[in-house]
């Protein structure tokens, strides 16, 4: 037998799913969101730096302007998905008890939705001034 074990397992043949079909879906999505995250993070840091020390009225006006609001929105949506996958990975690595695992995975989803939708709501409110 060759010293290099084949990567393909009998299960792969049974299921008919190569690793690239769906098995690495989240791996790939984590890469997409990390690439997108680079310019968005730089954008967010620039926005926050520019807003330091400004009055509430000025902050509201700047955060509500289209380019700034869109950048922050993209950052939030992109980061929400990225951190959801990331925390899921951490949970799957360290939480072995089935009940705790299920609960933490649910909590992860709840947290990400709550935090991101809160932020999105705030940006939309600032943008449309409702």
């Amino acid at each position: 037998m060759s010293p290099v074990q084949p990567m393909r397992t009998p299960m792969r043949r049974v299921r008919g799913l190569g690793a690239a079909r769906s098995g690495t879906g989240q791996f790939w999505h984590q890469r997409i969101t990390s690439v997108a995250g680079i310019p968005l993070t730089i954008g967010l840091l620039l926005i926050i730096t520019a807003l330091l020390g400004r009055s509430h009225a000025a902050v509201v006006q700047i955060l509500g302007s289209p380019i700034v609001a869109i950048t922050v929105l993209l950052f939030i949506v992109n980061t929400a998905y990225h951190m959801w996958i990331g925390m899921q990975e951490i949970i799957l690595d360290y939480v072995h008890d089935d009940r705790w695992k299920l609960l933490s995975l649910m909590a992860n989803t709840f947290f990400v939705f709550a935090v991101s939708l809160t932020s999105i709501y705030a940006i939309l409110k600032l943008s449309f001034g409702v």
Binding site: H56, V59, V60, L63, V72, I76, T79, A80, M83, G86, M87, F111, V115, S116, T118, S119, Y121, A122, I123, K125, L126
Partner: peptide
Amino acid sequence: LYFGMLLLAWWLIAAA
């Protein structure tokens, strides 16, 4: 950073 997003959310919701 996962939990740090709470700070960003707090800041944005306060501004709004």
